[in-house]
């Protein structure tokens, strides 16, 4: 049963990954990428790695791809220009693809990831919590790499924010705190005056 589910999800994953690079419409390609992420999350669930699977959905499907789609939908990409010169790029592209393929075969091949070097995963006991196990390892054994990664991300956040903080003198800003602080007396003036009589009538 588990094998059948695995093969169904793998087939969907490979197909959607293929569709990402073959469909003509960039929005469709981005949506197929979403499908690919979602199916790989399902595969991780089969490995009892529920924390990683749900985080993949939460971060990549729920946030990163939404922003990606946002940009892809806003850009009006002209496909005919993109398809020009396909033949001239083909040799370089093919070379890079073969190189990547060879590298991956060297690293992920059966020599490093075969059954004799990595033992087959054993199903965990009923009370096993993937989240707790990950947390224990992350904050004890790998605490320094984890903290360093956090600092690097923080630097990246600050860098991105400072890049957007350039002052443009011609741009008009609204100051919400000033808007909130406005009182009635600043805007409305009440004038007391006697009611006027219409002329001509008595």
């Amino acid at each position: 049963m588990e094998h059948i589910i695995f093969y169904i999800f793998s087939a969907i994953l490979v197909l959607s990954a293929l569709m990402v690079i073959t469909v003509r419409n960039p929005v469709h390609a981005a949506l197929f990428l979403v499908l690919a992420f979602f199916t790989s999350a399902a595969l991780w669930l089969l490995l009892e790695a529920e924390f990683l699977a749900l985080t993949l959905v939460l971060v990549y499907v729920g946030a990163v791809m939404v922003l990606f789609l946002f940009v892809v939908m806003m850009l009006d990409i002209n496909l005919t220009v993109l398809r020009e010169g396909f033949a001239s790029y083909l040799p370089v592209g093919a070379l890079i693809a073969t190189l990547i393929l060879i590298e991956m075969a060297l690293v992920v091949g059966s020599k490093n990831f075969g059954l004799d070097s990595v033992a087959a995963p054993v199903p965990h006991a009923a009370g096993y919590s993937n989240t707790q196990a990950l947390g224990n390892v992350l904050y004890t054994v790998y605490v320094y790499p984890f903290e360093i990664a956090g600092v690097i991300l923080l630097v990246a956040i600050i860098g991105a924010i400072t890049l957007t903080l350039r002052r443009r003198p011609q741009a008009k800003y609204q100051d919400p705190s000033q808007q909130v602080l406005v009182r009635r007396e600043d805007r409305v003036r009440i004038i007391k005056m006697p009611s006027e009589k219409k002329r001509g009538k008595t």
Binding site: E50, L54, T55, G62, T131
Partner: peptide, 14 residues
């Protein structure tokens, strides 16, 4: 399930 809260966050983000 143990990761119920995470599941909720993942699902509603879709």
């Amino acid at each position: 399930i143990n990761a119920g809260l995470l599941y909720i966050m993942a699902v509603t983000s879709m």
